[in-house]
């Protein structure tokens, strides 16, 4: 337990029904709580990429990856530590418009490079009359956390939705799955 740290587990799989269930079961069986779990297309048609973040130690990461690799339908699973990986998140922040003055917004956006999403089919910031704005921030998990904390502190945060870690692998899919595809 004391050697627990954040590990990113990736898996390239066939895009078939049931594989998500089996991958998730590997964690459930050992009562490992999942911090984030993302499945999406890979660059190769018909192959999905799982990106799962868990707090575990390395021996557990190894066992989990072995068990995931054992699933029929999984082409290749690996584990990484977050360091030295291009691991990013995307988050959408719903922010109270009423109390967000222009200078405050400038301050925040200088400190946390972000993007203001245009709402209502291209309406401007001031043209949004729903009482909120939507900000988009991408970056490391810690950067998202920092913006969240800042907005919360200032009483601006209404809602937050984040993608979980998305990773750009150093190797190409083809390299990762050399001899498999």
């Amino acid at each position: 337990m004391e050697n627990n740290r954040e590990y990113i587990i990736s898996a390239f799989t066939e895009n078939h029904p049931g594989i998500l269930f089996r991958v998730a079961s590997v964690f459930l069986r050992r009562k490992i709580n999942i911090e984030s779990f993302k499945v999406s297309d890979s660059p190769v048609r018909g192959i999905s990429l799982f990106t799962i973040v868990v707090e575990i130690d390395e021996s557990m990461a190894r066992v989990l990856v072995q068990q995931i690799n054992r699933i029929v339908g999984v082409l290749k699973s690996n584990y990484y530590t977050a360091e030295g990986r291009l691991s990013q998140e995307v988050a959408l922040f719903k922010v109270r418009k009423a109390i967000l003055r222009g200078d405050t917004f400038e301050q925040i956006s200088r400190k946390h490079p972000l993007r203001l999403l245009q709402m209502n089919g291209g309406a401007s910031r001031t043209g949004n009359n729903d009482g909120y704005l939507v900000l988009r921030k991408s970056g490391y998990k810690e950067e998202i956390d920092a913006l969240r904390d800042e907005l919360k502190e200032r009483g601006l945060l209404m809602e937050l939705s984040r993608s979980g870690s998305i990773i750009l692998h150093r190797e190409t899919v083809e390299e990762t799955m050399d001899g498999i595809l």
Partner: peptide, 13 residues
Amino acid sequence: ISMTSPVTKWNYQ
């Protein structure tokens, strides 16, 4: 399918 997933090598509907 859900019930047997953890105890099968493979299953399919």
